[in-house]
Amino acid sequence: MTTTLANTELDLAKLDRRQVNRALQEAAKGDFTVTNPGGTHALACGLMHPVSVTIKGHCGYYAAGMNKEASVTIEGNAGTGVAENMMSGVVRVTGDASQSAGATGHGGLLVIEGNTSARCGISMKGIDIVVGGNIGHMCAFMAQAGCLVVCGDAGADLGDSIYEARIYVRGRVASLGADCIEKEMRDEHRAELADLLEQAGMDADPSAFKRYGSARELYNFNIDNLDAY
């Protein structure tokens, strides 16, 4: 393993994606700037060390996927599946993100300052996601654990077939999916939300949010349904 000096620039106009990813993956620490991403897919994927990466521009699919410990900032938009299956660390998108942002994420924090589209947080398993703008349809589908915070509006079928993830939305929810209901905001939820908003750097009042979660009627065993088995 090599240790790389701080503030290393990796220019995709000169290097190919594999060279860039290898340099980022092999570094134990340090700050990196990736320039000229040009919508390239799978940038800064599989980082397993506490490096800090800034990508100057728009990324393609699966940017910062499988992230562990690294801090990745995308100064632009991200395509499908940004920070998918993230384990820990922080991924920040200063623009918009396409669909399936943070899909299946196990941990860490994903911040999208703009909007994101369909299926954000689908099957999330412990990741926290904070979105500054709106989210599309079918977000937090089968979401198991972690929090999805939305400062804007949510599209149709929010939290369909949700397990134990918690959803906080400040704006309007187009519709709730199967087994997803509005729930009481207690002190522990306000504290959790305030902490996430602060970590994400979002200036929003926790008391303006509503909480949504599972009615626990779909995924739990129910003795009344015994005959069905």
């Binding site: 040009g38 919508g39 390239t40 897919h41 728009h58 393609g60 699919y61 938009n77 395509g79």
Partner: peptide, 8 residues
């Protein structure tokens, strides 16, 4: 379909 086609 993807941004990379627009990037140039």
């Amino acid at each position: 379909s993807e941004f990379r086609a627009i990037a140039r």
